[in-house]
Design a binder for these strands. Structure first.
Lengths: 250, 250
DNA sequence: TTACAACCTTGATCTATGTCAATATATTTG
DNA sequence: CAAATATATTGACATAGATCAAGGTTGTAA
């Protein structure tokens, strides 16, 4: 399989040459013959088949996100949808040990995956102790994140949910920079209003209203609808409802 | 450390003598010198210190629930609470690799734990490959459960939430029995209305109203407020909003 | 057996967010 | 560039569930 950007060095035995500093991936690199790098097509519509990376009922692959944003979500019979995972670069996709899952993975933007067939991956998992350790660590971290998210879904107001989402995305994209002049936060929010509503358990109208309210109150600025500039990061964190500063501010 | 009921055989090398058929515990039993069995005091009030098994900021133990019901929950500064885990017999408590957690564990009923100091447990984790595998499997299962729960919190109606909770508890307590006469489901709901509301992201009044609505519609019967008899299990499953029967009915 | 505390139910009212609908702004395609 | 399509905003109105308040049950300790 031919490499495309971003270049990976499949023969490297550590993470230094890997564009994503992800220890699980290092273990993969040691078995370069299994490495497949593939660019997913751009996301089009929810229902269109081509946006679905993996459908829940047929997961033959596992992998890591290299670039782009994907999402894990679940749909009820009548169409209600809830996102249950936001997959950013370095996140793992898939469930070793099972070919079935209740969740679908969709590309939100163009997504590059470092992807593996499930069966040989499972063999690696039992052969390489380090990989198993790393998977456990990742699963426990995801579990913690899922539980934070449950607090958001169950108890936060619409305003708090939006503020939390913005703070999470800013942090995950390393978009929070402390300069002499203050805290500089500006990032692309690579989700539509609808995707945000699916993340937060709201409707897209409520998402839109809350974002525009934050704008009117000068907490954030909007550029081209999807690029966010945070004027008052401390205020944004207040609005999340979480205690203290979560480690962002000293 | 002296054993109390239920009797465990600390020297057993498989699960057969263990009251909870839990593979992780087997690995523990092989190292019996580390086994501590302790009965927690009964749950009294949320704020009373004696109901807290582990506080999030000082987790020196991990362990499994042997009997009783505990809960993992998270509290916001202003007192809003969300349960993020319902811990029934065989569930694992604690987070190896970290002494801190954002969540508190509280006893809901009297709880018996099979409990271990975190440090030696972590050593076992690296010494016993089987244990690490088992922990990974458990973490992935919990992650799936957390994600189902996110759908419940984000998208289900109050009615659907209650029906889902009843179905989950019935299943987890093995209270669903298929007889010649039909499906017999009856169980103790060892949670107060308030605890249910914390699980479901509702108020306790809404929980009460929905339970009594299900009673009026003859889906369930109540005995002494906490014992549930399900008259129409198929109907209850319909009310959960989940598709099909989730494998309960043929 | 009474009295107290914890837990639960029910009613009246309020409100945050959903729903429906119209319009505006971006983005893509021809 | 214009047309078409996908996204986003905004308004008017509806409603599920929250909140506030009162009274009823159940369990328990004296």
């Amino acid at each position: 399989m031919k490499m495309t950007t971003p270049a990976l060095n499949p023969a490297s035995t550590n993470c230094d040459d890997c564009p994503i500093k992800h220890r699980a991936v290092c273990a993969y690199c040691e078995k370069s013959e299994m490495l497949i790098l593939e660019t997913m097509k751009s996301y089009k519509t929810y229902s269109a088949g081509d946006s679905i990376i993996f459908a829940g009922d047929n997961m033959q692959f596992v992998g890591s996100v290299v670039t782009g944003v994907a999402r894990l979500s679940q749909t009820m019979e009548d169409g209600r949808r809830q996102m249950v995972g936001l997959l950013l670069p370095s996140d793992f996709i898939g469930r070793p040990g099972r070919s079935h899952s209740a969740f679908d993975v969709e590309a939100t933007t163009d997504v590059t995956l470092c992807r593996f067939e499930r069966k040989p991956f499972e063999k690696m998992l039992s052969d390489i102790p380090h990989l198993r350790e790393r998977m456990l660590e990742m699963a426990l971290d995801e579990l913690d994140a899922a539980r934070e998210w449950m607090l958001l879904l169950g108890r936060k107001t619409a305003r708090e949910k939006i503020a939390s989402l913005l703070a999470i995305i800013a942090r995950r994209q390393n978009a929070v920079h402390t300069t002499e002049l203050g805290i500089d936060v500006s990032f692309d929010l690579s989700l539509t209003r609808e995707a945000m509503s699916e993340y937060l358990g709201l409707t897209l109208e409520t998402v839109s209203r809350q974002i525009n309210a934050l704008k009117k109150e000068n907490v954030i600025k909007l550029e081209k609808k999807r690029h966010i500039i945070v004027n008052d990061f401390a205020r944004l964190l207040m609005e999340t409802g979480d205690d203290a500063d979560g480690g962002y501010l000293s």
